Amino acid sequence: MISTEFTGGTDAGQASSLPRSERAYQQLRAAIQAGQLSPGTRLREVELAESLGLSRTPVREALSRLESEGLVVNEPNRGMMVTQLDASMVSELYVMREVLEGTAAALAARHATDVEISLLRDIVERDLSMIDDPDRLAANNRLFHETLHRCAHNRYLLKTLRSLHESMALLGRTTLSVPGRPRSSYEEHLALVEALEKRDPALAEQITRRHIQQAYKVRLSLWIEEQSSS
């Protein structure tokens, strides 16, 4: 069953006024991002329609849209399912993260306002109160990166990064659940903020690329562990 509370950031009143296909899309996408529909989960139109309280047509349209975004795949002999990433796909995601987020950091060093950089520092400092809570820490981490992306002040880069991070939802549990990673991630974020405060684009990009590389190493170890136990 899918909880109808998943409305992609839309409140209940607004969700009820949306077209049915849009409502189905937002709820399914949010369920995938929240891990309620995990990678490999079969997506049957009849069951989803019943769970969402909708007819099959808007659900079918929503699944088609999710397929075009790479969150859902139509497997021969298996039907629609939440996309499962293999090792090469995980690597490709992190390569793009390194390139795009490194660029965003360099642009932020040039274009972010002092207030925006101060906000990034505030977000980083909140990490210290969440070290032992991976879920809250992951949410704060997403906020930090989303804020960094906006600080680049490049609408086309922002759109591309949003699309990339939609696919990141397929990766499963946060790397911040790995012992030691929360502290090192905090230190990496703090170093990035300091580079932004210095208005040093090259250093900001270098630190961000190294941060993503470290995250990828942890992610790959998690992926291998999960494959070994499945």
Rank of each mutant, 00 (worst) to 15 (best):
S88I: 08
Y94I: 00
T83L: 09
A87W: 11
E116K: 01
E116C: 02
D86S: 02
M80P: 11
N77Q: 12
S88Q: 14
T103E: 15
L85S: 01
V90N: 00
V82P: 13
R78S: 14
T113G: 15
V90P: 00
E116S: 04
S88C: 01
V82T: 13
E98L: 11
L107W: 05
Y94L: 02
A109R: 01
L85W: 00
E116A: 13
M96K: 14
A104V: 02
A104K: 10
T83Q: 03
T103R: 08
A104F: 05
G102W: 04
L93Y: 03
G102A: 03
R78F: 13
D86I: 00
A109S: 10
A87H: 10
P76H: 07
A104S: 09
L107V: 05
M96H: 15
V95P: 12
H111Y: 09
A109V: 01
R97V: 03
L100S: 06
S88M: 10
T103I: 11
Q84V: 01
V95T: 15
A105W: 02
V115M: 11
E116M: 11
A108N: 11
A105M: 01
H111W: 04
V99S: 13
N77T: 11
L85Q: 02
T83F: 09
E98F: 03
E75I: 03
A106V: 01
R78W: 13
G79A: 07
G102C: 04
E101F: 15
E92D: 15
L100Y: 03
A105S: 05
A87C: 15
A109L: 00
D114R: 12
D86W: 00
V95Q: 15
M80L: 15
E75M: 06
A104M: 09
V90A: 00
